[in-house]
Simulated assay, not measured.
Amino acid sequence: MQSMKVEDFMHRRPVVFTEDLPIEAAVERLLQSRQRGGPVVDTEQKVIGFLSEQDCLAAMLRDTYHKELSANVSDCMYRGEVLSVFADESITDVAQRMDAKKPKVYPVLDGDTKQLVGVITRTDVLAAIDQYYQDSYRRR
């Protein structure tokens, strides 16, 4: 199972955001993609934050209450260290780090450039492990 790599199961065209994107546009992207959140990147495709459904919900409730619709992603996003994985990491290693307190969506970075190359979700990791077990059962 160590041979199963993140790059084989990640989404290569994830929903990503920039700081200046209006929150309404960010929400529309999330809803259309059914992704639970996504990385916020700078002009060099480096991850500088993360925007979750929860962040969007809080911003939209606040803006509705104050009858304002002026928030941008930069006003709502998480700016701390974003938990990320590398494309060449093993699925098993990533699965061991995904516990209940961790994000459901992880940005996937290129090991050399540290640029965003995709995202991987808990569901993707679960599907990869399931595929491994299904293949193992078939070989018996």
Rank of each mutant, 00 (worst) to 15 (best):
V94K: 05
V105Y: 01
P103Q: 09
R122M: 07
T64F: 14
K101P: 00
R62W: 05
A127S: 12
V94Y: 01
I120P: 03
D75I: 07
K102G: 10
G111Q: 11
T113W: 11
I48R: 09
D112P: 05
A87K: 09
I120K: 00
L109S: 01
Q131R: 13
D124L: 01
R62S: 10
R62D: 12
M98E: 06
M60E: 05
Q32H: 12
V85N: 02
I120C: 00
T64I: 13
I120W: 00
Q96I: 12
D93I: 04
T123W: 07
D99C: 09
K114M: 11
R97H: 06
L51N: 04
E81P: 06
Q131C: 11
R62C: 04
E44I: 00
D110T: 07
G49D: 08
K102I: 07
H66P: 01
G49Q: 07
V117S: 04
K102N: 12
T121R: 00
Q115C: 15
D55A: 09
E81Y: 11
F86S: 06
Q131L: 11
L51E: 07
D130R: 12
K114H: 14
M77A: 04
I129V: 14
T64P: 05
D110V: 10
G37A: 06
V108C: 02
V108G: 00
R34C: 09
R29N: 06
C76F: 05
S33N: 11
F50P: 00
R29A: 10
R122F: 04
D124K: 00
K104S: 14
Q35C: 13
D99M: 11
A100Q: 14
D130K: 12
V40K: 07
Y106D: 02
E44V: 04
Q115H: 13
L69E: 14
T92F: 15
R79Y: 04
E89P: 01
L109K: 01
G37S: 07
G111S: 15
H66E: 14
D99S: 13
D93P: 00
R122A: 05
G38W: 03
A71S: 15
R36V: 08
M98H: 04
V119Q: 01
G49K: 05
Y65T: 11
M60L: 15
S52G: 09
G37R: 03
G49C: 08
N72E: 11
L31V: 13
R62L: 09
V94I: 14
D93G: 12
V47A: 05
A128N: 02
R29F: 08
D93S: 12
L30A: 06
F50A: 08
R97N: 06
V94M: 07
R36H: 09
E53D: 11
T123Y: 09
V119K: 01
A128W: 00
N72P: 01
L31P: 06
Q131V: 05
I91G: 01
F86E: 10
Y106G: 00
Q35E: 15
L30H: 09
A100S: 15
L57Q: 06
K46W: 06
G111C: 07
A128S: 05
D130W: 10
D112E: 15
S70A: 12
D110P: 07
G38R: 04
Y106E: 01
E28C: 12
L57A: 13
V41C: 10
M77V: 10
E89M: 11
R79D: 08
I120T: 02
I120M: 02
V94D: 03
Q32L: 13
A87V: 04
F86Y: 15
D130H: 13
I91M: 02
R97P: 03
A95L: 09
R36N: 10
P107K: 08
L31M: 13
Y133P: 07
